[in-house]
Amino acid sequence: MTDDIPERPPGGGLVQALNVPRNAGIGLVVGVVLAAGAYLVRVLELFGPFAGTRQYPGLGAEGWFILLAFVLASATALLVTAVLTVVSAYRLSKEV
């Protein structure tokens, strides 16, 4: 038995080949823009006042809408990143 440890292949090759960092950046921008737009429309009432106001326990309306905007931004970023990565994988499979 030898004491030599076999070398591991580089781990970032697939990530770079599928353009994951670029896709994540695009997803983040799309998510933040969508969430900011939804937040501004709702809180600033850009399309006019909403019918019926409700009382929100705890944080108040703005606090809850900030949390919802964060969830919307992160979910949208994840979805866009996944879709763009699948498209990159499909294109890469066609090249081979």
Rank of each mutant, 00 (worst) to 15 (best):
N19E: 09
L78H: 01
D4K: 15
L46N: 14
L14W: 12
L14Y: 00
N23H: 07
S93G: 07
T85R: 08
V41E: 12
V83M: 09
I26M: 10
L28M: 14
R8Q: 15
F47A: 10
I26V: 14
L40N: 08
Y56T: 11
L46T: 07
V29Q: 06
I5L: 09
A69S: 03
L72Y: 00
K94C: 10
A36R: 05
V41G: 05
M1G: 14
P6D: 12
L79Q: 02
T53Q: 07
L84W: 01
L78G: 05
G27S: 04
A17S: 08
G12T: 11
L59R: 04
A82V: 12
L79T: 13
D4H: 14
A73L: 10
A69R: 04
K94S: 11
R22Q: 13
E95G: 09
P57H: 10
F70L: 13
I5K: 11
G12W: 05
N19R: 02
G31S: 03
L68N: 12
G37K: 05
L78T: 07
L18V: 06
L14M: 10
G11H: 05
L14F: 13
V41P: 06
V15K: 14
A17K: 14
P21C: 05
L40G: 06
F47Y: 09
A17M: 15
L79W: 07
V86P: 13
A38L: 03
L34M: 02
A36F: 01
F65D: 04
G11N: 04
Q16N: 08
Q55K: 14
Y56F: 12
F47E: 07
Q16W: 11
P6H: 15
G31F: 00
P6I: 09
V33Q: 13
V80R: 11
V33M: 13
E95M: 09
L34N: 00
T85Y: 06
A75M: 04
A69W: 01
F65N: 02
V20S: 01
A38W: 01
L92H: 10
N23Q: 02
A61F: 15
Y90V: 13
P57G: 14
V32S: 01
Y39G: 09
L92V: 01
A24Y: 03
Y56W: 13
G52Q: 10
F70S: 04
Y39N: 15
A89S: 06
T53G: 15
V20L: 13
V86G: 06
A35F: 01
A82I: 03
L46H: 12
L59M: 03
V80S: 03
G37M: 04
L68E: 06
S93Y: 11
G58F: 02
R91V: 01
A17R: 14
I5Q: 12
R22T: 10
L67H: 09
L67D: 04
S74H: 00
D4M: 15
V96G: 04
P57N: 14
E45A: 05
